[in-house]
């Protein structure tokens, strides 16, 4: 489990090239491109919340599965390695940095399986799939990602969900939630990046509810 400290921002498409150059100059490293194939899986049966139930009731979460995108592969059944991630709702309270706990594991799909059969056996179903495509730079301990989300059209082509804008995500992963010193240091680091980029990119914390991957019970 890691604690992910993050800030988000948005730029228009016309700003993309100059921002890429600016980030390269700021960090002193060339932006490296990445494309991540992501699956979003939901439980096959959603448990309804019963206000006066005697049984213990647990939250249900959506699962994220990530793998590097490979355009030589036809569909998700050809991918054999997946990182499975489940994220908590970000911590509440008045904060300057979004803090979210994420657990993950790496699934090695065996020869006679596909990711769908694996998820099916634990009671999950793939609901959506999308690509995250962009560039990544590193600034001290901070990872800065500038990306767009691509979804599959009816024709089977990947197309930007919103081709007018790019998202910017700056984050640091801290391994232990109890490591207060590192959490503070990382928050400061992100805050100073925010100050540095003021007037260029506005970095802010996203709405907690948007980052919530729980389903069912309370909704």
């Amino acid at each position: 489990m890691v604690q992910q400290l993050s800030l988000f921002g948005q730029i228009t498409r016309s700003q993309h090239d100059i921002t890429a150059v600016a980030l390269g100059t700021l960090t002193g490293s060339a932006p490296s491109p990445f494309t991540t194939y992501t699956l979003l899986a939901s439980p096959k049966r959603v448990v309804k919340y019963e206000p006066n139930s005697k049984n213990a009731q647990f939250e249900q979460y959506k699962l994220h599965l990530k793998s590097p995108y490979d355009d030589t592969k036809k569909d998700r059944s050809e991918y054999s390695e997946w990182v499975l991630q489940v994220s908590d709702v970000p911590s509440a309270g008045k904060r300057k940095i979004s803090t979210q706990a994420i657990v993950e594991s790496c699934i090695l799909v065996q020869k006679d399986q596909s990711i769908d059969t694996v998820l099916d056996s634990i009671g999950y179903l793939v609901e959506k799939e999308y690509l995250v495509k962009g560039v990544r730079v590193f600034y001290g301990n901070i990872v800065i990602e500038m990306f767009q989300v691509l979804v599959k059209t009816a024709e089977g082509e990947w197309k930007e969900l919103d081709d007018r804008a790019y998202l910017i995500k700056c984050f640091i992963n801290v391994e232990k939630a109890t490591d207060v010193e590192n959490l503070q240091k990382s928050s400061q680091e992100l805050m100073s990046l925010k100050n540095e980029l003021t007037g260029f990119v506005e970095l802010d914390i996203p709405d907690r509810n948007v980052m919530d991957s729980r389903i069912g019970i309370r909704k």
């Binding site: 489990m1 890691v2 992910q4 990445f34 991540t36 990530k66 793998s67 590097p68 390695e81 990182v83 499975l84 991630q85 489940v86 994420i102 657990v103 993950e104 594991s105 790496c106 699934i107 090695l108 065996q110 399986q113 694996v118 056996s121 634990i122 990544r136 990872v143 990602e145 992963n173 391994e175």
Partner: peptide
């Protein structure tokens, strides 16, 4: 049988898919 590993393959780690410190499926 679902096989999971806490030793994330290099290709996935390099592509930035992993956040580090993975657990087993049992823990999840």
């Amino acid at each position: 049988a679902i096989v999971t590993t806490t030793d994330v393959p290099g290709s996935l780690a390099q592509a930035g898919c992993s956040n580090g410190s993975p657990d087993t499926l049992g823990q999840i």
